[in-house]
């Protein structure tokens, strides 16, 4: 069902045109990579502040008020370019082990951010100047750093075809994790 849809999506003229374009695909991909500096870069600075190991004199609320809008812009650029890249080759990414791991970690990173903003950050005015923020905030910072680093690494590895379904034989766990449609062969 999903596969049929993705196969159809990948056969749409614009998907084919994007994948086969000489400059557009590399431009979208480059924008995706460079936006990392903005999105993950500003996120990481904020996380390091939460951990109490960077910008000790800058209040945490200054980060969430003044820098977060820039993080959001970075995130929007990453989403738009990321969706376009997915659209250029939907079925291949769907069956890519690294892409699947990346998506799961991406969701975890999002949940962590939501928990932080709905939770400990509500009381931020009380500890915004602390060199070392409360434990819950430090945990949120550490989880965020680890999760985004993993997203970056798995994202980069999507480009490699080591575990692609059409490169059989693959170990059993790879075929299962990638959801390779082996019965069709």
């Amino acid at each position: 069902m999903i596969e049929r849809f993705l196969e159809w999506l990948g056969d749409t003229p614009w998907s084919v045109a994007l994948l086969e374009s000489l400059y557009l695909w590399p431009l979208v991909e480059s924008t995706h990579v460079l936006a990392l500096g903005l999105f993950v870069g500003t996120t990481a600075m904020m996380d390091l502040r939460l951990l109490g190991i960077a910008f000790p004199t800058v209040p945490v609320t200054a980060f969430t008020k003044r820098l977060l809008p820039w993080t959001r812009i970075g995130f929007a650029v990453m989403m738009v370019t990321g969706l376009l890249l997915f659209y250029s080759q939907p079925l291949r990414y769907y069956h890519n082990v690294f892409f699947r791991v990346k998506l799961v970690v991406l969701i975890l990173a999002g949940l962590n951010a939501a928990v932080f903003h709905r939770g400990i950050h509500r009381s931020a005015p009380g500890w915004t100047h602390d060199d070392k923020p409360p434990r819950a905030a430090r945990i949120a910072g550490a989880v965020s750093l680890a999760a985004w680093a993993l997203v970056v690494v798995t994202g980069r590895l999507i480009a490699y075809n080591w575990f692609d379904c059409d490169l059989q034989p693959q170990p059993n766990w790879v075929n299962r994790l990638a959801g390779c449609p082996l019965g069709a062969e």
Partner: peptide
């Protein structure tokens, strides 16, 4: 690939440190 991935993580931190 591993070196590239670490290079990218460096890019994130560098981007953040410069942008701030």
């Amino acid at each position: 690939p591993i070196l590239e991935a670490i290079h990218l993580i460096g890019l994130c931190l560098l981007g953040g440190a410069i942008l701030v």
